[in-house]
């Protein structure tokens, strides 16, 4: 690679970064609302309404980050989009069915007039959340395994499917304990406490498996001086797990001042895990087959998209913040009035 940055080398990196950012935001934001869906079977009917209300104003926009992430993959790295999604044909399909099911259940449950109808849509919401979470975890596993399909990779993907689902339920619980009060908040703390060991096991399993199955990734992590620079990642993760454990032991406190800490800590934990993965796979977008440079669209097309992205993404972030500010505080009954 030459020393002077050229559009051919910088644009793919910028787009990979944008795409990574979108995936990360998606995983955290839709992670918590999928997680809320996963936890619904453990709540009473009234609590279910509050849980739904806590994610009501956000879920549309949260899922839009997935469209942006896949959209960026599609427009910036078209051949990778084809290669990855053709390899993941069935899990992608399962995820889409799940997302459709929960999205429509969300709308229909509020507009049905019978208790039975509501129960059925609640069940559809839970099933959709579960299907979407499991299939995303499965895809993560297959991707880590280099999009190969053997018995071992399938087994590993099943493991990641369970782990990611657990992680979503965990971040969903931390969201709820921030957005609710009373009995539901106490339940949310309990759910989060029970989920924490699962999150640690999941993170650990993925962190260990990734370098072990791939010699290239092993070398990227376990050689000097890289290892020294990378050491803060696992150390910070361990620190965050400690913060989570401590804060969950003391929540809910009477003044309810610190209930945002677990959600923030788990968001940062997700971010660290994601940064670690991004480092492992760079510069490949299709593991060990296609780099971001090989898969990128023509520079002139990328440049046109970049102009739009530079204008729009700051605005998106600004009004996403606005929406979260308007609907801050404890979840109250949502109404169209």
């Amino acid at each position: 690679m030459d020393m002077i940055p050229s559009p051919e080398t910088t644009l793919p990196v910028i787009f990979a970064a944008l795409m990574g950012f979108s995936i990360l935001v998606y995983v955290v934001l839709d992670g918590f609302d999928l997680g809320v869906g996963l936890l619904m079977p453990f709540a009473t009917d009234d609590e279910k309404d509050t849980m739904i209300a806590s994610i009501g104003p956000f879920w549309d926009a949260n899922e839009t980050w997935l469209v942006l992430a896949v959209g960026l993959l599609l427009v910036a790295f078209p051949s990778a989009h084809g290669a990855i999604l053709t390899a993941l044909y069935l899990p992608v399909f399962a995820m889409l069915i799940g997302l459709i099911l929960r999205g429509v259940a969300f709308e229909f449950r509020g507009k049905t007039d019978t208790a039975r109808g509501k129960r059925q849509w609640n069940a559809a919401f839970v099933a959709g959340s579960l299907l979407a979470s499991l299939s995303q975890g499965y895809m993560l596993g297959v991707y880590i395994m280099g999009l190969q399909s053997t018995q071992i990779t399938t087994g590993f993907a099943l493991l990641t499917a369970v782990c990611l689902t657990g992680a979503y339920a965990f971040i969903g619980a931390t969201w709820l304990l921030m957005k609710t009060e009373g009995d539901l908040q106490r339940k949310a703390v309990l759910w989060a406490k029970r989920g924490l060991p699962g999150v640690v096991v999941g993170l650990g399993a993925i962190s260990l498996a990734t370098p072990l199955v791939n010699a290239r990734i092993f070398d990227k992590w376990f050689s000097l001086p890289e290892f020294a620079f990378l050491l803060p990642l696992p150390l910070m993760s361990a620190g965050l797990v400690g913060v989570l454990w401590l804060s969950l032991r003391h929540l809910p406190d009477s003044a309810d001042r610190w209930s945002w800490i677990p959600f923030l800590a788990s968001s940062v934990l997700f971010t660290l895990g994601f940064v670690g993965m991004a480092y492992s796979f760079y510069p490949y977008v299709v593991p060990d087959q296609l780099t971001i440079y090989e898969a990128a669209s023509a520079p002139e097309s990328l440049f046109i998209i970049l102009v739009g992205a530079c204008i729009v993404i700051p605005i998106i972030i600004a009004y996403t913040t606005l929406a979260y500010t308007i609907f801050r505080g404890k979840a109250t009954g949502l109404s169209y009035d």
């Binding site: 739904i52 509020g110 507009k111 009954g333 949502l334 109404s335």
Partner: peptide, 8 residues
């Protein structure tokens, strides 16, 4: 139509 009934 109470679209999102508030918590009891």
């Amino acid at each position: 139509v109470a679209d999102m009934p508030r918590a009891g």
